[in-house]
Nucleic acid binder design. Structure first.
Lengths: 141, 141
DNA sequence: CACGAGTCCTTGAGTCAATCAAGCAATCTC
DNA sequence: GAGATTGCTTGATTGACTCAAGGACTCGTG
């Protein structure tokens, strides 16, 4: 679910458009993940370990408890999509790496997750730059 | 969690900006809901019943199983934020309506969910129109 | 009118995501 | 080295979600 809604009445046009865009993006993300047998959480983690990361880094980036990451990584490891390697510099810590299978699966997932690519393709180069600038400005960036 | 990620490597600027915007939006939504003791799911449902809706309509709009809606509505009803009224025209069906408490709480939630409002406020009127048009075009709308 | 099919919702069972509290092992600080 | 801190895991719980099954109601057809 997790479908934000916007006050049908009060919302201005931009706010409505933002909502629709966010909703479409979220929906596309989830659909793409499911198509490859991934939950959104699994896809998030799998995406992050494109480069080697510790459990703690994942927890921070994904804004959740470390024990949550443990649970997800264990499952991904059981499917041989990631490996947990010891960190030679700190034996408390573990480095998570994607396996080749994980790379393949995530690649396929990204292929399927066409939304941002398609959205960009619907715009001219100038419009893309404009949109980038406007989104960043809207976020105060 | 539910934090979409984007290929750190391959993503273009627009795609990166889209991701950041969506992520910020999602995060703001969840934070605002939590601040009022609502889960995202509860906030979604509460938002939709601004106007009277059947369980089935809610399930369809929120793209989930009817039994999921039942569960959420039961809890919202227990907190007296919504009421389930019989539909006189079809006694299988139930109409969900917000109570005054529900109106108040959702109003407060929207007040807290400042992200879209703030984002709009960071732009000039002309930029807002531009952004609306670009987002719609990007979605093929 | 009655029967069967379909609709609307609820219940129950089960899974995954998420959080918290507790604990263990390794590291750091003094 | 003792004690605090860090990094992760385990266990218990809660909530969101899905699916299968069932009850109540409606509708269409004969």
């Amino acid at each position: 679910m997790a479908v934000p809604s916007v006050p049908a009445s009060a919302a201005t046009d931009v706010e409505q458009a933002m909502f629709e865009f966010v909703d479409a993006y979220n929906q596309a993300w989830e659909a793409a993940a499911n198509e490859h047998g991934l939950s959104t959480a699994h896809a998030c983690v799998l995406g992050r370990v494109e480069t080697r990361r510790s459990m703690g880094e994942l927890a921070e980036e994904l804004r959740c408890d470390a024990s949550n990451i443990t649970q997800i990584v264990v499952r991904l490891e059981a499917r041989e999509l990631v490996r947990r390697e010891p960190n030679p510099d700190d034996r408390r810590s573990r480095q998570i790496v994607r396996t080749p299978d994980g790379d393949d699966l995530y690649g396929a997932f990204e292929e399927t997750f066409a939304f941002p690519r398609a959205a960009a393709a619907n715009l001219t180069a100038a419009e893309r730059e404009q949109l980038t600038a406007l989104l960043r400005k809207a976020m105060r960036g």
